[in-house]
Design a protein around this nucleic acid. Sequence first.
DNA 1: CTTACTGTTATATTTATCTAATACAGTATT
DNA 2: AATACTGTATTAGATAAATATAACAGTAAG
Lengths: 127, 127
Amino acid sequence: MEFKDNVPIYLQIEQRLIKQIVQGQLQAGDRLPSVRKLAVTETVNVNTVQRALRDLNMQGFIYTKRGEGNFVTDDQDLIADTKEQLIKQAVTDFLKEMQGLGLEHRSAQAALENYLRKEEQDGDSEH
Amino acid sequence: MEFKDNVPIYLQIEQRLIKQIVQGQLQAGDRLPSVRKLAVTETVNVNTVQRALRDLNMQGFIYTKRGEGNFVTDDQDLIADTKEQLIKQAVTDFLKEMQGLGLEHRSAQAALENYLRKEEQDGDSEH
DNA sequence: CTTACTGTTATATTTATCTAATACAGTATT
DNA sequence: AATACTGTATTAGATAAATATAACAGTAAG
């Protein structure tokens, strides 16, 4: 997997796993790949994986059974709340970014609509 | 000025300055504050400012007159192109982020519209 | 009990970021 | 020339992130 420069790998792993959980790719109770397997597939050190999982544990997204593995939380409310919060965050981040470029909220919306319109005209696989 | 954790300060300074340029807050030919003044106002070391300015120089956004200061490029095309590119980038980043949360493009658009509608209903200062 | 998986912890090393302090160099004003 | 601004460069030190390596500990199946 590729990582962005300039943002810690363990954070990127965290965020990716959280997204997989809220998106349903990883379901409540599912077992994660073992730390060593994750380290291999992410081409990253075991300690780096451990660091990410430790954070996810503290945040309640996963729980650990020592000797067995790490499992996705059964707290459906947490998952739903997180999803809602991440969506809202993405929206406000987008608006803030556009505002920093000189576009007010409605202009930002217009830019998005404009992009999607072009995307439809050109043949852009998904719709 | 506050900085985000986990993303290098010199990069945040770079990005902020670029935004000020494309947004028109800093105009072509304008002199930037001196490195030492920037270091004070950003509560950051001179070397960190220098690092940011060195990058901006290489990218063509500013030019340096030694002994005089740093000045915003006169290349209007570069500024316009960069603005356009940053806007497109913000849009695609937003869509990609939403897709990672399980929302297709049209759903992402709907979420944005929904947010803006609520914002209007509540008294949200700007419009 | 042995084996082979799990997660956990510790030590040492490298690299990037950031700071601090200092010195050097160009420009302009007096 | 002296002063006071500019940018530039160097050195040293602190911290965080990531790697490599190794050992320790729980679980389960043979």
